[in-house]
Design a protein around this nucleic acid. Structure first.
Lengths: 348, 348
DNA sequence: TTCCTCGCCCAAAACGTTTTGTTCCGCTAG
DNA sequence: CTAGCGGAACAAAACGTTTTGGGCGAGGAA
């Protein structure tokens, strides 16, 4: 019934203890439900804390218990850019936003970190409770750094050169590819090509593996193009030019992993007089603004960034809780059929 | 010359002290350049720290010095969404990304925080060193909360109902508007309308103020439409319908603040038989994927999120350093002229 | 010699928690 | 009556820093 605020100072556990007439130990126990405290005492403490507006200092708590309440997020594809230009923007902002929300909902903050292996890491980056690495590159040095510092981590998409590392969330790349090929086949495609990116990540690698195995199964020769992810629509146009100039007929089904590439590719092919979906059907591996607003609109795999991000956060938190060996969740993506493959189905 | 690592434990300042044969005080001083330590001693300490791979624990440091090394970022427009769907996505991801980079470059981490006034704030949110609030709403409760807790903050766009708060970065809204109107006028527009959003933020408010004052100066009646930011392209189409059904002639120049609205608006007007830029010229107040890929492409104000974000981070950090009264920086945006206003200039 | 100053270094206090180990007390079993 | 036990509370240690307030010795001025 005395001092409510010791002047401008932050209200600490000591203030609560004094107001409730108990020791700080009891306050801590009462508030965290840890030790054994009498019901009446607990109530007194809780009330005092409420009227004082007390909440434990996250830093002090972090020091003692080695838990800061922050998750780190590294989006690898963004690291390769000089500035955070919109590349796969659409996907990644939704991913980051959803991850932030999921983390907040679980009482954690989410910290965006740029490649922590370069230059001087702000010490704080190594103080977070755990990391989510989106689309690691092969043998990713970030993973090495974190492991060396004993910081738990989870990746979205596996590290292709680290087969022993299993704490990754699959985004169903293989299944997606299979579904895409079936979709094209059902609509009469005879010669299907793959346009992949050049980053050494699992998405590119696994898509190509799935494609080649599908080709092998059908006795079709594999036609693979690779184009830098960062080249955007103009990169897609360049791939189209290569197709047109090759002397070979242009494939009648194209699975183009990057949305921006798909958009440029389609535009160039149409300029060259081909029709979509009449002469060529196009499917993008990543839904984006471009695939939705191109004319014709482009059939795409919706990578469901929200679901993936939420799954990643939950997976990481379960690891942090020591729920050691629960397997990684798997996220189901959905194929959004649009005009670029709008052909009647054929009997097989 | 002895123990390099006390087993699996984290290497602390004590380890360095022991290895260098000095006290922890001296280590701290030597490493932080604080007290006065002999050159030879400093070298010994630095070497020991290097070989041990020591870096001060950010949490412990934070506890002692009340500086965590983290900046919080709240993007208000995203808070009003249920899920982080792409609204002005383009702008905000670039903003968040650039802010993260700028913060990292200055040795700080950047933490994404969703509206900290709702529900239970993860305590960590109130432990950060300072906040950047993007596009606060009128009399924003987030600002209230942070001020109450004595947490420094800076906003991007002013709080329209908090005239006494001056630590905000202007994104040149007024100047942008003026430039847009001049652009339309130079190309022969006679009746210019404004399509604003409904959020109670400075962008909407100041744009309308600039518009009305411009109208007053020319003796033109003000034609203002308002449409919810979240309605996207279909919202733009609805505005177009209102224009078409009004009985009045459709304006021959439209300044539409939101890129998605502009895209839908243009599409609907063209469906109704109007030509762009022949019958109507359209300018968007926020460059985005939509404005770039619409047919025809839409002239837009590039809000230069990277520059704004960097400025915001620097401004906040200068406030944290106590460089108290340096005025807020102002960022210059640039008008990207595209097809939607591609008309010959007229003499005035 | 004595006193002061100054350069260099260190022990200890603080930061606000959580956790460990202890004390106190009343009750029950022997 | 005594030993043992368990509920309730607390004092103190610990977390890893930074900062405060000396302490010590060498050199210079008196």
């Amino acid at each position: 019934m005395l001092l409510v605020s010791t002047s401008g100072r932050r209200v600490t556990i000591h203030d609560v203890a004094r107001n409730a007439g108990v020791s700080i130990t009891t306050v801590s126990h009462a508030l965290n439900g840890k030790g054994v405290v009498a019901a009446a005492t607990r109530k007194r403490v809780v009330d005092a804390a409420a009227t004082l507006g007390y909440s434990a200092d996250a830093i002090a708590r972090g020091l003692r218990s080695n838990r800061l309440g922050i998750l780190g997020l590294v989006i690898r594809p963004l690291d390769t850019l000089d500035s955070y230009l919109p590349v796969g923007v659409d996907y990644f902002v939704r991913f980051a936003g959803a991850a932030a929300v999921a983390a907040l909902d679980r009482g954690f903050g989410l910290m965006l970190v740029r490649d922590p292996t370069t230059g001087s890491v702000p010490g704080i980056a190594l103080a977070v409770d755990g990391f989510i690495i989106s689309d690691p590159v092969g043998n990713d040095p970030v993973i090495g750094l974190l492991k060396r510092n004993g910081i738990p981590l989870v990746t979205v998409g596996r590290d292709v050169d680290r087969p022993d590392f299993t704490d990754w969330i699959g985004t169903g790349t293989g299944a997606d590819s299979t579904e895409v090929f079936a979709h094209l086949l059902d609509r009469g495609a005879q010669r299907v090509a793959l346009v992949a990116g050049t980053d050494a990540n699992a998405w590119n690698a696994d898509s190509e593996i799935a494609y080649r195995s599908w080709c092998a199964g059908r006795g079709q020769e594999a036609i693979v193009y690779r184009e830098d992810e960062r080249s955007g629509e103009s990169g897609g146009r360049m791939v189209a030019d290569v197709m047109l100039d090759s002397g070979e007929p242009v494939p009648d089904g194209i699975y183009c992993l990057t949305g921006r590439h798909a958009s440029g590719l389609q535009a160039r092919l149409r300029e060259a007089g081909l029709t979509v979906p009449g002469d060529v059907m196009i499917v993008a591996g990543s839904d984006s603004e471009q695939t939705r607003s191109s004319r014709p609109t482009i059939t795409s795999v919706d990578l469901s960034p929200e679901a993936t991000a939420t799954a990643a956060v939950n997976f990481l938190l379960s690891r942090l809780d020591g729920d050691a060996r629960s397997g990684p969740p798997s996220v189901k993506n959905v194929l959004r059929a649009r005009e670029s493959t709008n052909r009647p189905l054929v009997d097989s």
